[in-house]
């Protein structure tokens, strides 16, 4: 069980989706259907979501509401997906994006 997932909370009850398998950089991970991709990655211990375009600095979850661009990733071949908003689906293929993202690949 992920050390990041809250099991018990005094105020909240989380209605999580069913368990689904997805792939991050080719590795199979488990998350909850419908939760943001970035939250699923975080729960799986993945904090580095991309590298900055110029200086290749690691970037992670920052604003959580689609304002900043720290969580842009490549999802099922699409570049620049805001993973803090993108709902997780079974079998998703998630990759760290290099540079500004390639629209054609």
């Amino acid at each position: 069980m992920s050390e990041y997932r809250i099991q018990q909370h005094p105020i909240l009850q989380f209605s999580l989706g069913r368990r689904v398998k997805f792939y991050f950089e080719g590795e199979a991970l488990e998350g909850r259907e419908g939760e943001p991709v970035a939250a699923a990655l975080h729960a799986a211990g993945v904090k580095v979501l991309k590298y900055s375009a110029e200086r290749e600095r690691p970037r992670g979850f920052f604003c959580a509401i689609g304002n900043c661009s720290a969580c842009l990733m490549r999802v099922d071949g699409r570049a620049n997906v805001r993973t803090c908003l993108e709902p997780l689906r079974e079998g998703m293929w998630i990759e760290r994006q290099q540079g500004k993202g390639d629209l054609d690949a």
């Binding site: 990041y4 943001p36 939250a39 992670g60 979850f61 959580a64 509401i65 803090c84």
Partner: peptide, 25 residues
Amino acid sequence: SDLPGVYGAGAVQTLMNVHGVRPGQ
């Protein structure tokens, strides 16, 4: 300050109180 693990407080609230995921220990 650009490292993964630096969050806005609102982001921590979203991660933790909406999605049930802790930002760290």
